[in-house]
Amino acid sequence: MISFKNVNKWFGDLHVLNNINLEVEKGEVVVVCGPSGSGKSTLIRCINRLEPIQEGELIVDDMKVHDKKTNMTQIRAEIGFIFQSFNLYPHMTALGNVTIAPIKVRKVKKEEAEKLGQQTLERVGLGGKAGAYPAQLSGGQQQRVAIARGLCMRPKIMLFDEPTSALDPEMINEVLDVMVDLAKEGMTMIVVTHEMGFAREVAKRVVFMDEGQIIEIAPPEKFFTKPKSDRAKLFLSKILTH
């Protein structure tokens, strides 16, 4: 479904992605973790070309993302992207937020899109908030609307860029619950997160990154109990001591 082959990317002199090789299969859930600045956000931002790559091959759903001639609109419509800071449209209601892309990109009729939007909001537990503006919602609710916004495009892949990092602790679970449900329904997901409970419950593999490189790929149980690399051990000792 997603295939990185020898992918390299630089920000000026900084080698943010260093020879990345990674295959993600349909229906697979992959958790990406690593210290800040390790390139994990950049990795998933490349998948829908929010960031272009400079070298290598990146193929998503049989389409060449590395090729500048590829029309990204079509690929982006197939990929839901969830941001750390939600990025809901503040001038639109929750329902407006989740229906704008289906109406404008997929050309779904307004009534149909609104029906789908209402259903999707119910799915993330926010059926009663369709008319609310983002500012009237809590952080956890906003992030769930953002997930619903992604789902309304009926995507093949969902990407999550630290979806719970900007949330108050008591709101993290309501978002993770929605993500767990999605994973169990067979959605292909790549999740940048340090939520180890989530990784243990649904991830098939954990990808550990440091300084732009993939250091280790392992099933969650193995990674959290017996990491192979020293850098992973160091990282885990830092995040697990609390």
């Binding site: 982006r76 449209y89 704008i100 404008k104 495009m153």
Partner: peptide, 23 residues
Amino acid sequence: VPSGQREAARASGLSAYQQLRYI
């Protein structure tokens, strides 16, 4: 307008014109 707005619009597949017009 915060850059995250344009990014979210871009990520959802809206064209450059649609991003400008609606977001």
